[in-house]
């Protein structure tokens, strides 16, 4: 299966193509942290990974994108591009949460839990807890820092994402942030291909890996019936109803 994945849910932008070849799956990826300009950069990254792989869009079998949580506008950039492509190609699109994508590259050395989180501002974080197999232990949610800490059982946990520094002060010993962990991994010769800075954000490469595994478990009918993903906002829009409908009274 040739699968294209994109992510723009956090202050980063990435595209990844996983291409099936007789020699196994080849991956073509582009990743760049950025706070703005994803609407401009993402389509170019997609074109670039397709060109590097030497395939045309109509040779894609499936698409995947992150659905959030993340910045509202960023989440829509990736979803709108993927859905636009899918309307033409008539191929399934799978949505992956940005917290799953964040947790995916973490391979706990001693069966630690994984707490993936992003700063959601207003003293809150987007948070989801996983076991060492990346199986979700909670839903993705938006919670205050200390509330998230209370949801983590008293056992060793690896923190990943921009919410880690906000969460850590509320946890006892036994938690470690992924930067320290990754450094020790790299020192041990593991995961040396991973860019340390990239741990802070989801990456399309991880989204593609997750999606490929999920598609592999689906029947042809399941794939055909897949509904195009919608944004997972979690937080409601800021819109206050005017008093008395705005009418003078």
């Amino acid at each position: 299966m040739n699968l294209l994945a994109v992510d723009t849910a956090q202050p980063a932008c990435s595209a990844a193509l996983h291409m099936e070849t007789p020699e196994g799956v080849k991956t073509f990826c582009r990743f760049e942290p950025m706070t703005r300009g994803q609407a401009e950069a993402l389509p170019m990254m997609v074109q670039e990974v397709l060109d590097r792989a030497g395939i045309k869009p109509n040779e894609l079998d499936a698409l995947a994108c992150t659905v959030g949580p993340g910045t509202f506008t960023g989440v829509r950039v990736g979803i709108a591009l993927a859905r636009g492509m899918a309307v033409v190609l008539n191929k399934p699109v799978l949505g992956v949460t940005s917290l799953e994508a964040l947790a995916h590259p973490i391979k706990p050395p001693h069966n630690e839990l994984i707490a993936a989180s992003f700063d959601a501002r207003r003293e809150e974080i987007y948070f989801q807890l996983f076991d060492h197999h990346q199986t979700p232990q909670t839903d993705p949610m938006i919670v205050r820092h200390e509330e998230a800490a209370a949801l983590i059982p008293a056992q060793p946990v690896i923190l990943v994402g921009t919410g880690s520094a906000l969460l850590a002060p509320h946890l006892g010993t036994g938690s470690q942030q992924v930067q320290q962990l990754a450094q020790s991994h790299i020192a041990q010769g593991h995961a040396a291909e991973l860019d340390l800075a990239a741990f802070a954000y989801p990456q399309a490469d991880q989204v593609a890996a997750i999606a490929r595994a999920r598609f592999a478990k689906m029947t042809v009918a399941d794939r055909a019936n897949l509904i195009a993903p919608s944004p997972l906002y979690i937080r409601a829009p800021d819109a206050k109803l005017p008093k008395n409908g705005g009418q003078l009274s």
Binding site: P43, P57, T73, A80, A82, R83, G84, V88
Partner: peptide
């Protein structure tokens, strides 16, 4: 409204890219 413009433009970019 920029949020809406982004949705339409990105959907169009996806269509243009895929349909070449």
């Amino acid at each position: 409204l920029i949020g809406g413009v982004i949705v339409g433009l990105l959907e169009a970019k996806g269509i243009a890219l895929a349909a070449q």
